[in-house]
């Protein structure tokens, strides 16, 4: 009895070691995993990873899966700084543009508008938003998260397989003690699965929808490089509405 119990504990430990990590950066090397029947969860994950428009996602073969996981996945983010003028109506036009591109506004204040648009429309949206006013600055970047997502997918796959094996073991457990130990491990691996899924979903969301922040503001002093010039001409610095209104005694 003791030998059997010890054997089960050893199996759990071995399974835990084999399934929790992938061979990604910073992770221990992935051990070989035995082929098991694919659980529903795994099929779900495969379907999510299948390309849009796939007729039968569940039939995605190994090659397609490999292609998908090796496809480049990019998170596009952009920032546009517009000079402050007629912010209310500019924001309304920005929202209309984003609606046309089937995106949405995720945050709005008097100084900032954060929008999310389908990745395919990222450049169109960025250029369109920049044309809404006097663009003082525009930046964008594409962050390649292919490797991070691939690591997460492998870790998820291994964790799901481990969970299946633990469930099989649990069904075969002879004693309460054995069952408790397996359940503890099952609980841990289930939490791990949920955590990885959350990370993957976050990545998938950010890959599918690009984020663009539109700021309405003047160039702040700390935006101006230290070596920037100042013309030594006093009246140039005195131009503008305030000086104009004061000259007429309006203020």
């Amino acid at each position: 009895m003791r030998i059997k119990c010890g054997l089960i504990v050893l199996m759990i430990a071995t399974l835990a070691m084999s399934g929790c990590d992938a061979g990604g950066a910073g992770a221990p090397p992935m051990n070989e995993v035995s082929r098991v029947e694919i659980a529903d969860d795994m099929a779900y994950e495969r379907a999510r990873a299948a390309p849009a428009g796939s007729d039968d996602r569940s039939e995605m073969d190994g090659e397609a899966e490999q292609n998908q996981s090796s496809a480049q996945r990019l998170i596009f983010t952009g920032r546009v700084i517009l000079a402050i003028y007629d912010v209310e109506s500019t924001q309304i036009r920005a929202i209309e543009l984003v609606d046309e591109l089937e995106g949405y506004v995720s945050k709005r204040s008097s100084e900032q508008l954060t929008v999310r648009v389908p990745a395919a429309s990222f450049r169109v949206a960025l250029d369109g938003l920049a044309e809404l006013g006097d663009t003082l600055d525009m930046t964008w970047e594409a962050q390649d998260v292919s490797e991070q997502m691939r690591d997460l997918e492998i870790r998820l796959k291994n964790s799901l397989e481990l969970r299946d094996r633990l469930e099989t073991l649990l069904a075969r457990a002879d004693t309460v003690e054995e069952a408790l130990k397996i359940e503890t491990e099952l609980e841990r691996i289930t939490l791990e699965v949920e955590r990885i899924r959350g990370q993957l979903e976050s990545f998938e969301d950010r890959v599918a929808y690009s984020t663009i922040v539109v700021e309405f503001r003047t160039i702040r002093d700390d935006d101006v490089p230290d070596d920037d010039f100042v013309l030594p001409v006093a009246w140039v610095n005195d131009l503008g509405m305030r000086s104009l209104l004061q000259s007429a005694g309006v203020r």
Binding site: A83, I84, T218, I219, L239, G240
Partner: peptide, 9 residues
């Protein structure tokens, strides 16, 4: 001057 530090569009 107007566009940058002046804050005009």
């Amino acid at each position: 001057r107007m566009r940058t530090t002046g804050g005009y569009a």
